[in-house]
């Protein structure tokens, strides 16, 4: 029963009756999700993060890129809640600005990867044959290509840039969702309702959009949370190495890069603790959301 945690489409999420009658599976899943404290905490933390990076820069009186040298390297105070960095820039404003970049890269790359991966995986699983074999092989190889190292090589040759980060991450992350979508489609295509749709003469496009994609979606949502976590971590790592987001533009990764000297490390923890904690909290909450969604839609677990 634990061979796989993936739900196998709508048929695995039966409409269950309660005292008030039939409950739609979506509502049922939501109810299970809300009962999971870790998942709710994850959702709350991520929401706070997103709100903070969206509205924080508007509320902050300081610019993330301009500093005042007089107040450089000051410890957290009433004026600068998280202190200031080596050239007097407000650290809180930089954490907000950095979060914008980090979360944008993470979410855009994951979104792109999920859309491409779901389409490729679904079609590959549906049609099978030589195309499927070739795509599966490509998926296998790409899955073992480490994004951070590819970025180092690309940035080393073409120069680092934010669009490149998003494209490379998406290009290397889509196989994960494609493999999952393909797996679900392989089991879906043998099921009666899909067979029936075929016999009734539905066009392929109709079956894919109406029957396959909805079945694949729950599993893909779970995969998407992992991709977001992966992309945020990878962005932080490459920016930390100097191959990602370039200063003066802030990102959580390059803020840590700025503070890896032993003086900053030992005497100015306000410069490196906040961005590090921000990355950690984002990744952890995304993972908690993914686990929560998986448990909520997987009826076999706590039936």
């Amino acid at each position: 029963m634990t061979t796989t945690n993936l739900p196998s489409g709508p048929s695995a999420a039966p409409i269950r009756s309660s005292r008030r009658g039939l409950v739609p599976p979506g509502r049922l899943a939501l109810r299970r999700y809300v009962r999971n404290p870790a998942a709710v905490a994850g959702a709350v933390v991520l929401l706070v993060m997103v709100l903070a990076v969206v509205f924080g820069p508007m509320l902050s009186p300081y610019s993330p890129d301009v500093g005042e040298l007089i107040t450089a390297r000051s410890a957290p105070s009433a004026a600068h809640w998280l202190g200031t960095d080596a050239i007097g820039r407000d650290q809180l404003a930089r954490v907000f600005a950095g979060g914008r970049v980090s979360l944008t890269v993470g979410f855009l790359a994951a979104l792109l990867a999920v859309v491409v991966g779901t389409l490729v995986g679904t079609l590959s699983g549906w049609f099978g044959g030589v195309a499927d074999a070739v795509i599966s092989r490509i998926i296998d190889i790409l899955l073992s290509v480490p994004p951070v190292l590819v970025i180092i090589v690309f940035a080393g040759i073409l120069g680092p840039s934010v669009p490149m980060l998003i494209i490379v991450f998406a290009a290397l992350l889509w196989p994960q969702s494609a493999r999952i979508a393909r797996g679900v489609v392989l089991s879906l295509r043998e099921q009666e309702f899909v067979q029936a749709a075929r016999v009734l003469g539905s066009r392929t496009a109709y079956i894919v959009v109406r029957h396959l994609i909805p079945g694949v979606l729950p599993a893909v949502v779970v995969a998407a949370t992992i991709l977001v976590a992966d992309a945020v971590l990878s962005e932080a790592a490459v920016s930390f190495l100097g191959a990602g987001v370039q200063p003066p533009q802030a990102s959580w990764g390059n803020m840590l890069n700025d503070s890896k000297s032993i003086t900053v490390l030992s005497s100015m923890p306000w410069l490196w603790l906040p961005p590090g904690i921000a990355i950690f909290a984002t990744v952890l909450s995304t993972m908690a959301i993914g686990d929560g969604v998986r448990d909520a839609i997987d009826t076999r677990r706590n039936a």
Binding site: L233, A236, A237, G253, L256, K260, W272, I279, F280, M287
Partner: peptide, 9 residues
Amino acid sequence: AIPSFFLAM
């Protein structure tokens, strides 16, 4: 979830 470089720091 913890980035290796943050843990290292």
